[in-house]
Simulated scan of single mutants.
Amino acid sequence: MSKKPFIFKQFEVQQDRCAMKIGTDGVLLGAWADIPENTNSILDIGTGTGVIALMMAQRSSAQLIDALEIDENAYEQAVENFEQSDWGDRLFCYHAEFGEFVEEMQDEEKYDLIISNPPFYNSDYKTTSEERDIARFQDALPFKLLLEGSTYLLSEKGKLAVIIPKNQEENFLDIAKNFGLFPEKITYVKGSPTAEIKRCLILLNINSTKTAKDELIIEHDRHQYTKEYKNLVSPFYLKM
């Protein structure tokens, strides 16, 4: 297994000890999520390598950027990646399960932005790697737990940003509504102009308003990236 780090423009990410490597979903979410100027605190749930939390540190002046990771190896690697970055004084990682974290923190800390690239494949697709399954399957962090727990941790102006499969959008939004969370913005992601929509980037808040919807196409042709995609990720990827 390669021990070379994934090098971004302003930070590097070691990922050899993480079951789930850096991928398009996480980087898209970290680049897409709205961060208002008055955002003081951010929580990244299921941080893995720590890449989204690092992107939050690059993009914002938030003084508190917490991350949460259940897998011990990924947790230790995220801590190392935070310490090696320019923002180590603003980044902190907790090694805990989300439900436990909510119980401990709900009266201690509120977050202006909660962000998560949650596991979303069901148990029918389990692999032989327990670490990869924990990182990628919904058993470890069901949408219900993510949404309900977030309501205890969000500040009054707080928002929740996620990326999920298109075929789970309706179920996710139904659960969110039950917990008083409503979609403020949804971006549908397609790999190419003729491809099906595979992902939804969703921003939720506690106010029921009209949902702004748009579409993001990643490529015109193979490795021929669209202007919109390049504008979104160019602050991070070296060759973009």
Rank of each mutant, 00 (worst) to 15 (best):
K110Q: 15
I197H: 00
K9E: 11
P142V: 13
W32I: 13
R90M: 00
E97H: 05
T128R: 13
M56N: 08
A212V: 15
Y225H: 10
F120G: 07
S208K: 14
F182V: 08
E215Q: 14
A212N: 15
K213C: 12
K230F: 02
L238W: 03
P119Q: 08
F182G: 04
Q14C: 01
M1W: 12
P119M: 02
K126V: 11
F143W: 02
G23I: 12
I164N: 00
T226A: 14
K21H: 12
I70L: 13
I70R: 07
N122I: 01
Y229C: 04
F101G: 01
R17G: 02
L238A: 03
E69V: 03
D66Y: 06
F8T: 07
C18Y: 00
E169V: 07
M105Q: 12
P36R: 09
M56Q: 13
I197C: 10
G88R: 10
F6E: 13
E83D: 13
P5I: 01
N73D: 11
F179E: 11
N81E: 09
I206A: 05
M105W: 02
F143Y: 14
F11M: 01
I115C: 09
Y225G: 05
I134D: 07
F92A: 01
F101K: 02
L54A: 08
R90P: 05
L160S: 09
T187D: 08
D44W: 04
E228D: 15
G30P: 15
S60E: 03
K110N: 06
P119K: 07
S192M: 11
Y75W: 11
A19I: 07
F179S: 06
V189G: 00
